[in-house]
Amino acid sequence: GLPPGWRKIHDAAGTYYWHVPSGSTQWQRPTW
């Protein structure tokens, strides 16, 4: 699974990851 606080988001551009507490997003899968 993903580290705490991360969500996987799907949209028209593809899949990305959202860090809910900080509001940051990234294309790379977050690592622990």
Results as ranks from 00 to 15, higher is better:
R29K: 13
G5Y: 04
P3V: 02
T25W: 14
W6S: 00
Q26T: 10
R7G: 01
T15Q: 07
A13I: 11
Q28G: 08
I9A: 05
R7M: 14
Y17Q: 01
W32I: 10
Y16E: 03
T25P: 02
T15S: 10
T15H: 08
D11I: 12
A12W: 09
S24R: 15
I9S: 03
R7D: 05
A12K: 12
Q26W: 06
T31I: 12
Y17T: 00
P4H: 08
W6K: 00
S24I: 15
Q28H: 13
T25K: 15
R7T: 12
D11M: 09
S24Y: 14
Q28W: 13
Q26K: 05
G23P: 00
G1N: 13
T31R: 08
S24N: 14
R29P: 13
Y16I: 08
V20K: 07
Y17W: 06
T15F: 09
V20M: 11
K8N: 03
W18S: 07
T25D: 03
P30Y: 04
P30S: 02
P30Q: 00
G5T: 02
D11L: 09
W6Y: 01
R29S: 08
R29H: 10
W6E: 00
A12G: 12
T15R: 04
G1S: 13
G5F: 04
P21A: 10
P21G: 06
P3M: 03
G14Q: 07
W18N: 05
H19D: 02
T15M: 08
Q26G: 02
T15Y: 08
S22K: 03
Q26A: 06
H10Q: 13
D11Y: 08
V20F: 10
G23Y: 03
P3D: 01
W18F: 14
P30T: 02
S22E: 01
P21R: 07
L2S: 04
A12T: 10
P21Y: 08
H19W: 04
G5E: 04
G1L: 14
G14N: 04
D11S: 15
A12E: 14
T31M: 12
S22Q: 02
P4L: 07
W32V: 10
L2P: 06
P21H: 05
R29I: 13
R29W: 08
P4W: 06
I9F: 05
T31Y: 11
K8G: 04
W6R: 00
H19A: 02
V20P: 05
G23L: 04
Q28M: 10
G23V: 00
A12H: 08
V20G: 07
P30W: 02
R7E: 09
K8I: 15
P21N: 06
P3Y: 01
A12M: 09
R7A: 08
P30N: 02
T15N: 07
G5Q: 02
A12V: 11
P21F: 08
R29Q: 10
A12D: 12
V20Y: 11
T31A: 11
W32F: 13
P30V: 01
Y17S: 00
T15G: 07
P4F: 07
S24T: 15
G14A: 05
P4R: 06
A13K: 14
Q28I: 09
T31P: 07
K8M: 15
Q28N: 11
P4V: 06
R7L: 14
